[in-house]
């Protein structure tokens, strides 16, 4: 392996070690109770993961996230594709989405809590709202960009409009749709934690804020690491699936970058 390739391979590890080292030094220098050292935070991780109660909380979070994300994707992709291929569908939904888009979904939580309580339904609904918009947007853009002539070719082969939507627009827009899903996945994690901050009943966010209330700062930081790691793992898994599904659209060769 060439030195450049080796460096590329170990660079992420170096970045993590670097970050932890800066944290450790900063924490030792500041000597602040609310800022534990990196080693203290890492040492608290096994305690959390070993605790049955915490695990149930984290799994409950993940379940809500999976449900919110899954339903959002199932609803948003067809809607986005229809908007991309039909001017009247787009004209109807675009203004609605423009109104909802800039509103932080967590800001809707108090109202939703009022209507649906503080349980799973409310939190899952907030995750659903958070995921929907980027997936709709990217599906919309992807469907709009599908070459008309490709659809004409399909029509000449005898595909009905519905078949063209499912068998041409969907696969042709898939790279763009999956870009939206990837953004949606990260947003699902963010809205998941946010929803648990607001409706404190169970979940990973609940552990974090309970620890904060009780001044267990090492647990707070340990939870931040755990949530971050969850995000990185989910994203990595998703990226692998995505790369497999759209291998046909990826560039064949790695072009050298300007600063490689």
């Amino acid at each position: 392996m060439s030195p450049a390739a080796l460096l590329r391979r170990v660079a992420p590890v170096l970045a993590c070690i670097g970050l932890l080292a800066v944290w450790q030094v900063a924490s030792l220098a500041l000597k602040n109770d609310s800022f534990p050292t990196a080693t203290e935070a890492i040492r608290a991780i096994p305690d959390i993961l070993g605790d049955k109660e915490s695990l149930i909380n984290i799994l409950a979070s993940l379940r809500r996230m999976a449900l919110g994300f899954g339903v959002a994707v199932l609803v948003s992709i067809p809607l986005g594709l229809l908007m991309g291929r039909s001017r009247s569908v787009a004209a109807f939904f675009n203004p609605l989405l423009m109104v909802i888009y800039p509103v932080p979904k967590a800001a809707l939580m108090p109202i939703i809590m009022l209507w649906l309580g503080v349980g799973d339904v409310t939190k899952t609904l907030v995750i659903f709202l958070g995921v929907s918009l980027p997936v709709i947007y990217h599906s919309f853009e992807g469907a709009k960009a599908v070459e008309e002539k490709m659809l004409w070719s399909g029509a000449a082969m005898g595909l009905s409009p519905a078949q063209r939507l499912v068998r041409i627009v969907l696969p042709a827009a898939l790279p763009e749709i999956l870009t939206g899903c990837r953004t949606g996945l990260v947003l699902a994690l963010i809205t998941m934690i946010t929803s648990e901050m607001i409706a404190r009943q169970s979940g990973a966010g609940n552990i974090l804020f309970n620890a904060l209330d009780m001044g267990q700062y090492d647990t707070v930081f340990a939870m931040i690491i755990i949530v971050g790691a969850m995000g990185i793992c989910l994203d990595a898994i998703f990226e692998r699936v995505r790369a497999r599904l759209v291998r046909w659209s990826e560039p064949q060769f790695d072009m050298p970058l300007s600063f490689s």
């Binding site: 070459e147 002539k149 490709m150 070719s153 041409i168 696969p171 042709a172 659209s249």
Partner: peptide, 13 residues
């Protein structure tokens, strides 16, 4: 009637 377009319009997937 079978079209052949300048843009090829193949199904890339």
């Amino acid at each position: 009637r079978g079209p052949v377009f300048q843009e090829f319009a193949l199904f890339p997937w």
